[in-house]
């Protein structure tokens, strides 16, 4: 092999970059986030599967209907009515942003802009000052 020194340096850099995630995660046992739902209620606005996959779409739709059309009542797939309000409907049950919203959002680096305008529910353990991630 010609220029072995340079070639080996190059290969080492390549290997280091490619395998970086393996080294980074080494010795950091990570558990998927556990959510504290914070309610005895059995049923959210829609089914659990729908909420897990598409809550952001629902919230986006709510925002548009309330802010642009002044429509406040949401009728879900089973015909039940809800007040379209993040602060009065969602967080009534999901009363802890840090133990519910943030756990997944931080784990997945999702940065929704809900709290740019809305006020997060008061945290019981004085975590309210934490900025949204």
């Amino acid at each position: 092999m010609y220029n072995a020194g340079k070639i080996i340096i190059g290969i080492v850099i390549f290997l280091a970059l490619i395998t970086a995630p393996f080294w980074y995660n080494l010795g950091r046992p990570s558990a998927p986030p556990k959510l504290e739902i914070g309610t005895q209620e059995k049923q959210c606005v829609e089914s659990k599967a729908f909420m897990q996959a598409k809550h952001m779409v629902l919230l986006d739709q709510w925002r548009d209907e309330v802010v642009r059309d002044g429509k406040r009542i949401y009728v879900n797939s089973t015909g039940k009515q809800f007040n379209m309000s993040l602060q009065n409907t969602c967080t009534k049950c999901h009363s802890s942003k840090t133990k519910f919203c943030d756990r997944c959002h931080t784990y997945l680096n999702v940065a929704p802009n809900c709290w740019d305008c809305h006020i997060a529910p008061k945290e019981q353990e004085k975590l309210a000052g934490r900025s949204d991630k």
Binding site: F22, N25, P32, Q52, Y107, L108
Partner: peptide, 15 residues
């Protein structure tokens, strides 16, 4: 399901 995707990815990257 992003949660499932990340769990899978992390499980792969931790062997």
């Amino acid at each position: 399901d992003l949660l499932g995707v990340k769990n899978l990815a992390i499980s792969l990257f931790t062997f």
